[in-house]
Amino acid sequence: MRHATALRIGPVGFRLGSDWPGPVAAIDDLYAGYPQPLDGIPDFTVRLFAARPWRRWLRPSVHIGGDYVLPDAAPLPLALGLIAAEMGMNLQMALGQRRYLLLHASAVERDGRALLMTGISGAGKSTLAALLMARGWRLMGDEFALVDPETGLVHAFPRLISLKNEAIPVMEAALPGARFGPRLEGTPKGTIRHLVPDAGSLAAMDAPAVPALILFPRYGFATETREVLPSETFLWLTQASTNYVALAERGFDALTRLVTQVPARALDYPDTDSAIAEVERLWASL
């Protein structure tokens, strides 16, 4: 393709091709410190393309393609090319990842042990992970946690942290010196601004961690913590995994091991300060 780049996020290599220079330049800029795919061979290809040649210039609209595609995925305006590239990479993971059990969860690490946070969109998993990173935890990822069925370890997938709407000013205040992407208005999820994970998180991206706690945060309620039984955690996590069914027995075994070995808590919180205090308290009590 006319414009192309490659990068590796944790164990997963990507190649991105684009009909326009903009999305590739945005990715190269924000992913500047990331390594190249192992052996120069990416796991997945993402293509950003114009459906008709003239749509490269005339009302340019970015279609997302690649090794794995969803039929009928809506195109994005060129101004949101960065989002299209991110969606393309997420799509490859969601549809094509077969090495790791993929959990739609954020993950942070301290002392070699990982905290996984999962929940519905708006539960605050990205924001809480970013705030914990600001407090010295290693960010392993804000979107996907990769569970290795062979070892039970969690592998990092520290892509750009995708901050949405109210989370943007919260993180701008918490990390004034951090690298942020452009402010993108009018995306399918409102306003989005990407935050680059800190240098420590990137330097350690190849180090897996032992899962130690699973949290189900829920924003907008009085602070309350409740134990979640392995059976219930199992059910929630099958919902939070895009490839649990495709991995079949390996997926079942990996998830069974995870929920039987790792404690899980539901955490309701009214504001981020309370949530962080509660997370630190739970972590200390493990």
Partner: peptide
Amino acid sequence: VPGAAACILADA
């Protein structure tokens, strides 16, 4: 085959 390709092919 190269290591990265071997992983991709094993997944396939």
